[in-house]
Design a protein around this nucleic acid. Structure first.
Lengths: 258, 258
DNA sequence: CGGGTTCTTGACTAGTTTCAAGCAAAGTGG
DNA sequence: CCACTTTGCTTGAAACTAGTCAAGAACCCG
């Protein structure tokens, strides 16, 4: 039922910490919009907790009706759905600054699960406080809606990818998009970043089998496009990768951070 | 740039009408939550116009930065994205009561297009009034967010479908989901409904070629699952179709109607 | 060092696309 | 009202893409 069983081991208590929103190291990044002091004060009351999760643990499970939702403070998570026989589709990834679990908080029960890819720290918000937020801080309510819309846009892109792009285009798209998102939150260098997935994760993201994903990756490597070793992904030819990916211009507008 | 060129012909003026929100025939359907008098009064000011669109016209185009968004009052629309060489992915359909174009209103420019599948009537809202809504009617602001979350959930389902389901499962899923949605807004009988698509539309929804879609449909018909003639889709074996589709229980909770 | 997980590769099979052609139904214009 | 055109549906054959099976190599962790 609740996520506690999975993610809060006894030994986790000492891993707790609590960064005040006004001191949040994420908030100063240029990709996030500045909050005014009132908003920050509200956020600090709104943020109920901060928890640490082990790599591989399930944060929220399909069917849960959760009373909480989260912002990823550090680490990588992924959202996914499964069919009865175990086929899994990864819907999206969550990086630092991404809001997760809102769907479960707003609608009834979760219809997807969320797992931690790496050790993760999460800021915890209570579903009950959401109404308070909407009543007292329209600007933050607007931000929540904005973030929901951004999620929708990411899904639009992913659906186009899985529905229409060919194998190498799919990989190029996913890699370039994750690279850009990682870059925004200072988790990428100029042309290399830590992509903490297995090839099985990537396959389940692309809608391909593991074997086909592997063979396509190898082919792209031999074409001098990219190189992925030990979780480190290097973009060898950004020019041609972008061509393949047909990624939109990044919007310069800063986004909200809850 | 604006949608006017496409959709508002001169002869359309006389097709205008204006249904007051309190008299809206949709609002009384059990799938929509009741609004209180204050909310209704606000909605009537919020609704700027009501327009008629020809079948086949483009309502919003990728790249537009629109100042308006809409609720479908009657008819069918579809959202889609295209790649440079013309490959098209249909993301979702809009039926009576569905909010469309919110993404364009909230974020910068549209990154998808919307076309009318049938003649359509739309209630028009202005992007500028959205801030007013958030400030003065938290309950409606909550509704907007709720609707955005619902969109996200529909996309999650569609992504699972296109990424993981087999040909007949994909068709079963899309058909059963559209059937249920049509039923909710009184656009379906017990086991038959008007599905105003071509097979090309369905193919672009499923991520298959037209030919493969056609052959799969024929095979399903000969298996006694469904029958689609002249835009009329009949469910011949709801039992087995539901099995194939693995559709969730419909949530009984009424949804907002803006 | 050993055991598990992840990656890699080849051979074979199944699913899907492309090409091509014919047909049916629904406009269009003389 | 009827040829004519267009659009959508249907079908078969060939080519290609992706999946499955299988086995071994590489890597990681305790």
């Amino acid at each position: 039922m609740s996520f506690n069983k999975d993610i809060v081991g006894d030994e986790l208590a000492d891993r707790r910490a609590f960064v005040a929103c006004r001191d949040c190291p994420l908030r100063v990044l240029p990709c996030f919009r500045p909050f005014d002091p009132d908003e920050l004060a509200f956020m600090e009351r709104f943020k109920k907790d901060e928890i640490a999760i082990d790599a591989g643990a399930t944060i929220l499970r399909e069917g849960d009706s959760t009373r909480q939702f989260f912002t990823v403070f550090d680490g990588w998570v992924f959202r996914y759905k499964t069919l009865q026989d175990g086929r899994r589709q990864i819907l999206n990834y969550g990086l630092r600054g991404d809001l997760i679990g809102l769907q479960g908080a707003l609608l009834d029960a979760m219809q997807h699960s969320i797992d931690a890819l790496t050790p993760v720290r999460l800021c915890v918000f209570s579903r009950d406080a959401l109404w308070d937020l909407f009543t007292r801080f329209p600007s933050l309510a607007f931000d929540v809606t904005w973030l929901a819309s951004r999620q929708e846009r990411l899904l639009d892109d992913q659906l186009l990818t899985v529905g229409q792009r060919r194998a190498d285009e799919r990989i190029a798209f996913v890699v370039m998009q994750l690279f850009r998102r990682a870059q925004q939150v200072e988790r990428a260098e100029r042309d290399v970043f830590m992509l903490p997935l297995t090839q099985q994760h990537l396959a389940d993201t692309l809608g391909f089998s593991l074997v086909h994903t592997n063979k396509t990756l190898k082919r792209m490597e031999s074409r001098g496009l990219l190189r992925w070793r030990g979780r480190l992904l290097q973009l060898l030819d950004v020019e041609r990768l972008s061509e393949l990916a047909q990624l939109h211009e990044a919007s310069g507008t800063p986004r909200p951070l809850l």
